[in-house]
Design a protein around this nucleic acid. Structure first.
Lengths: 211, 211
DNA sequence: AGTCAACTATGACTTTTGTCACATTAATAA
DNA sequence: TTATTAATGTGACAAAAGTCATAGTTGACT
């Protein structure tokens, strides 16, 4: 029963809060590759990640997608929280990278718990804050940096998050997430390989050392 | 005495809240061009705009700046709120466009009021939400759109916010805010002028009609 | 009116990125 | 093994944006 993992992943939560979550939430499982949220969807619940890994994308009207950040166990989807107050949609897409378990909390409890549980209040605000900062970093990169730097940053982030030097993605997938084209990514990766920064395999990239 | 404008600009605030704000906050005035926040600064207070107009920029380590959004009367700086919980700095710059008056509320009251006043709680969350959305739109534009579209969007936004068809900026200033170069902006503007979308004057652009 | 500085215009060129065409290579299934 | 498919490599070219040089314009101020 994975609700027990809740306390492990969210150790700051008060006992009463954990009990309320247990009583009122639902566990949902997603297999790797499955979508948790899709563009235009209304939020009926807030998602807390207890296991697995989720990638969050921005999507435009022409179907271009753009990688924003990872959600890991112990984190929550800021968008679903932020849309709680006013029932609004958002142009966001979230996809499970690994098999993932989330706790789905009906939005109706959000307000109540905010005043009732200090730990919930701080968790929500900290979630906003960290995602906000993350978006600012994203903006920095696309606004100020060229593709080669963005690619390196992207690889770094993946190594960090995956906890492994091997990134299991094709050039095409990376190109999509950086909103570029495969050829460009291939060329840049080749250059990085010549500089000894990475080693290229089929369908995966081994990171040796980055700036 | 401009604290009376508070009720006008923030009509949703409860009477008790308004009284507390009156008792515990400070009014600060900035003349056009002055900086309200600079990169790396710690937040000691939250700012509510009661009069004037503020531009918020993102700044990178090399001093490039990038326009994010306007703050108008009735709005607040989300960053200063979001940094309230954990005392953190942020790479943000805010500049008064017109002469501006803000109410400066010590962060220590934030938490207390969140549970005490529903209107404050909703105001804070709505501030987060709308700024979050605004950042997503910004990301869309720099990730998915070319310079010509971004320029049109930029002009549109200024017309909306300024409530005037004449935008009092030089090509150089626009280039800086879009992180481009003057020549590029000049060329695009000239093209737009030939299409009858704008009329160019020295130090200002008159918008005729945009898509 | 004349001077000066800031702003704007523009052609030529470079760099970066995107696109197209096609070759090559590796993994997989028949 | 062979055939097939997806992934990668690469040269040639196009387009967008940035840079450089230089010249023209305008407004402001003696």
């Amino acid at each position: 029963m994975s609700i027990s993992e809740l306390q492990q992943q969210f150790p700051a939560f008060e006992k009463g809060l954990v009990q309320e979550i247990e009583a009122n939430s639902e566990i949902r499982s997603f297999t790797a590759g499955e979508q948790l949220m899709r563009t235009g969807q209304y939020f009926k619940s807030t998602l807390l990640i207890i296991d697995g890994l989720v990638k969050v994308y921005r999507e435009d009207d022409q179907g271009n997608e753009f990688f924003m950040y990872y959600l890991q166990p112990g984190q929550a989807c800021a968008l679903s929280m932020v849309c709680a107050v006013k029932q609004e949609t958002s142009q966001i897409m979230a996809k499970a990278v690994k098999d993932t378990e989330v706790i789905s909390i009906p939005l109706s409890y959000m307000d109540e718990w905010m005043s009732k549980y200090k730990s919930w209040y701080h968790f929500v605000l900290e979630t906003y804050r960290s995602r906000f900062e993350e978006l600012l970093v994203t903006i920095d990169h696309i606004a100020f940096r060229a593709m080669d730097e963005r690619l390196e940053f992207y690889l770094k982030k993946h190594v960090q998050t995956l906890g492994s030097n091997t990134i299991p993605l094709s050039h095409q997938e990376i190109a999509d997430e950086l909103n570029s084209s495969r050829e460009v990514i291939s060329r840049l990766l080749k250059k990085m390989e010549q500089l000894g920064k990475v080693k290229l395999q089929r369908n995966s990239i081994e990171v040796i050392r980055l700036g």
